[in-house]
Design a binder for these strands. Sequence first.
DNA 1: ACGAGAACCTGTTTGC
DNA 2: TGCAAACAGGTTCTCG
Length: 297
Amino acid sequence: MPELPEVETVRRGLAVTMEGRVLQSVVKNRPDLRFPFPDRFVQRLTGQRVDRIERRAKYLLIALSSGEVLGAHLGMSGRFIVTPVSSPGRNATAAEVWPPEAAYDTGAVSNRSHDHVIFTLDSGDVVTFNDPRRFGYMFLESSAALSSSKHLAALGPEPLSDEFNPSSLARALESKRTPIKAALLDQRVVSGLGNIYVCEALFRSGISPVRSAHTIKGVRAERLVLAIKRVLDEAIEAGGSTLRDYIHTDGGMGYFQHRFAVYGREGETCPECTCDTVIKRIVQSGRSTFYCARRQR
DNA sequence: ACGAGAACCTGTTTGC
DNA sequence: TGCAAACAGGTTCTCG
């Protein structure tokens, strides 16, 4: 579900609610998500203060006063929902007020049986992790060991950082014969991109998704890097893209889906071509790719 | 060693 | 209308 802009939007929502607060109670409703929860998960979290919430690629990193960091990946359908103590129904128990009205309104929350972890803060606010498909997961790691931990160690540069630039991208791609579409989904090349924003960035840069990755250098690398940074910036600004599962922590929607040029637009006319070229959908390594065969070479 | 495809799960949409 | 197949924002494992 969520790519970098969606995870960043969730991070901002959680930071407002959780930073500086103490985890008064933690309820875990099953032994595992995609992976088993860490040993003594509830005990290691209960009573900890949340110092800071950061993001690395698509991971949320919740730094605790114990010196440990709670990492969370949303997979395809994971979401955090905040039920404020001041919301309507505040006199009800936490279990009775979730999910908030806005989540009902979007239709994005369909089943309480997928509430896997419920955090109650000392403010009274309740933060719930819900994930129908259970591709999401959580882990705990000491702050010092975090960057070399299993899940984070191999990640490529943050696309919005200066470490991600035309020459670093060209270097990462020079040995790859796979199509550029697949290479950009490889989190070791650049971290945080997913199917939507790869399609959109390739369109903006005029690069064909089937082009061999190693041919991206020079001007093409410059155009691609710029397109990736811009599309991510714009999507974060719009609060991400809400298609099916993804919603904000307050149940609200992102708006960037209205600005997709190609994603999900098979058969529609290309927004940049003046002729009547239509957007094509192909399948690459099992995932849909949308592009304009005339404009993208 | 690399790359394509399957697998992991549930829910929703599409097609016969 | 009803049921089955296809599809979904991600990652990881297996196989050729």
